[in-house]
Design a protein around this nucleic acid. Structure first.
Lengths: 355, 355
DNA sequence: CTGTTAGCGCTTTCAA
DNA sequence: TTGAAAGCGCTAACAG
């Protein structure tokens, strides 16, 4: 391809200034009726036995002039928007970004669009987000709740709206929820650390988040397997999930145990960064035999100088499960407030082979 | 907060089964007219001097029963959707995820929603995405194009639609474009590598992407500053931007130069991963004096064993610029097919202090 | 096979 | 201050 040529289709000067774009306009221009044109446009020409010549004429016209079906009007008429809303704490979080990408693909393949909204982990923001989506008449909604009490329950609205919760399984919700098997992941992660080093600490974000609590439970039961008493003393938790919290918790862990742990797990990559920072400040560099563990994954973990184990969620599988649950509801299949569990994956870096 | 209590507002049994949710329903239920109710709901009670008692009655009713304005109907009537469409090659790319998050915030603050769509770097997918958005009647569109020729130009449509391009400035476009100053970033990155190591190679994705070509131009002019002849021989490029390409290019570079370079830059983190993999396969581990450079940034770069320099784009600044450009168009301010440039940031890891 | 009609819920305009 | 009417572009139902 030549660089520098004019590359974007410019407003075609041969094309009439006011391009017909609505069904009515096409009908008027071709001399057929709304209905006939609509049948052709919606691919129902066969079904309604539109004369081939008529169909060709209309299709030809559209090929020349283009048409854009106004789905706003369609939505109003059908009381169905073919749109799905997504409410997330933070799109910049890679897990949510991957989840969004996966959901988007599924939606598009089904002719739906995705409306993304962030709550910024703020219940008021979450309520605003839900309202925005409801006003837009979304047919369904996927919520990764940041508050245990969703402010505006979509039930009882004029239009019904399918709802699926994800990522955080607050108990007692009337909606189905799709989550990773956090307890199993916590167990498997801790199992590896303990088998290798005999001891480990867990640096966790807010314990009142169900996902965190489940991960801790897995960690604790692995501790039990290795006969570690007072496993609770190995868990450090914070209110927030960010780099500063990771730093703080690592400092706490070091202080309370009189030195660096031989292995640790963080409940997220943000905490993990903070923990590494704290170690860097204290030791200058990472002690080579420190075994690193974290929830979440990033390819760069591969290249850290130490051995690393991570627990990664399977965003595509989660998205598929969410989507199936959503479409089940949209097709009026029975919906229970069930808990759908998706398996995660444990990953280790190649450095394990070096030793 | 107690775990285990019922936490989501359940469908309130005291509330009538069919909650009035439309203006008409509220009007009928309260005995006032559409117009009166609408004035109250839209906060124009003052302006139209609605009787205080009337207003209170209506507000009270709404507080009890709730209301959700149907923006689908509103859009149809106003020929304005208060929605912005976003077309990206890939939401899972952290740069685009951050950009999306930033744009979303700006949109929400302005009462707009964001429709996200991915093209998967495929021109046909891009065309489908644009159509989807047009059908939805978005007021504006932000496109990070994957093809130099946008398939369905939104101009000439029934409703006008503001357009801003970003990330890739294909020449000759009739739309304004917002990009990072890639050439400057390439220059600054290369300048650091060359000052430190006297030599470097550039592993780049498809050269026909304007952003890549600009980065290379910056790299080459830094080479010029250091009197390196045959700078072009230090540039290796591929068709795709992925891990495999990075691996391949690093192998090529090693082969063509008879050994590992002393420093290198990759045009993206994906390529960077591939390059590190290739080195790992060859050497087992990274030579300590190898200086690493890459476009894109991730916090984990901080903890790699080697010295690292990265060029990071300023997603928030880009989003602000895009949004201003968009709102300018929406307010019918003059729009030129101008090129708006945002500065990037150079980052180095703390390991620089160790040596 | 093709055309006509009514109406989705909102906003705007005009009347009372 | 409040009410009534028209119409955005589409779809469904029915009429020819």
């Amino acid at each position: 391809m030549e660089l520098g040529e004019t590359v974007v289709t410019p407003p075609d000067p041969n094309r009439p200034a006011s391009t017909p774009m609505t069904l009515d306009e096409v009908a008027a221009a071709t001399g057929f009726s709304r209905t006939t044109v609509r049948f052709v446009v919606n691919g129902q020409a066969e079904r309604y036995r539109i004369k081939a010549q008529t169909r060709d004429q209309i299709e030809q016209f559209i090929r020349e002039h283009g048409i854009v079906i106004d789905r706003t009007a369609r939505s109003l008429r059908l009381q169905r928007s073919d749109a799905i809303g997504l409410v997330l704490p933070d799109l910049a979080n890679p897990f949510f970004a991957h989840l969004t990408a996966a959901l988007e693909d599924l939606c598009h393949a089904a002719g739906l669009v995705l409306l993304t909204t962030s709550s910024h982990d703020d219940p008021a923001g979450e309520a605003r987000a839900v309202t925005r989506l409801l006003e837009r008449g979304v047919d369904g909604m996927v919520i990764a709740p940041c508050s245990p009490r969703i402010a505006l329950p979509p039930s009882g609205g004029r239009r019904s709206c399918a709802v699926v919760m994800t990522d955080r399984a607050f108990p007692g919700q009337p909606y189905p929820v799709v989550v990773t098997d956090n307890e199993a992941a916590g167990y498997r992660l801790a199992d590896i650390l303990l088998a290798e080093r005999g001891d480990a600490v867990f640096l966790a974000a807010s314990r009142w988040l169900p996902s965190i609590e489940e991960r801790i439970r897995g960690f604790l039961s692995a501790c039990g397997k290795y006969g570690l008493d007072d496993a609770e003393a190995r868990v450090f938790s914070s209110e927030s999930d960010d780099v500063a919290a990771g730093r703080r918790l690592m400092e706490q862990a070091i202080a309370s145990r009189g030195g660096l742990p031989r292995a640790f797990v963080c409940s997220s990559l943000l905490m993990f960064e903070g923990a590494l920072q704290a170690i860097g400040v204290r030791n200058g560099r990472l002690p080579p035999d420190l075994l690193l563990g974290t929830f979440d994954h990033h390819p760069l973990l591969e290249f850290l100088p130490n051995r690393v184990v991570s627990a990664r969620q399977d965003e595509k599988a989660i998205a598929r499960t969410i989507f199936r649950c959503l479409t089940d509801q949209l097709k009026n299949r029975p919906v229970h407030a069930e808990r759908l569990v998706v398996e995660g994956h444990i990953w280790r870096n190649g450095n394990l082979d070096d030793k």
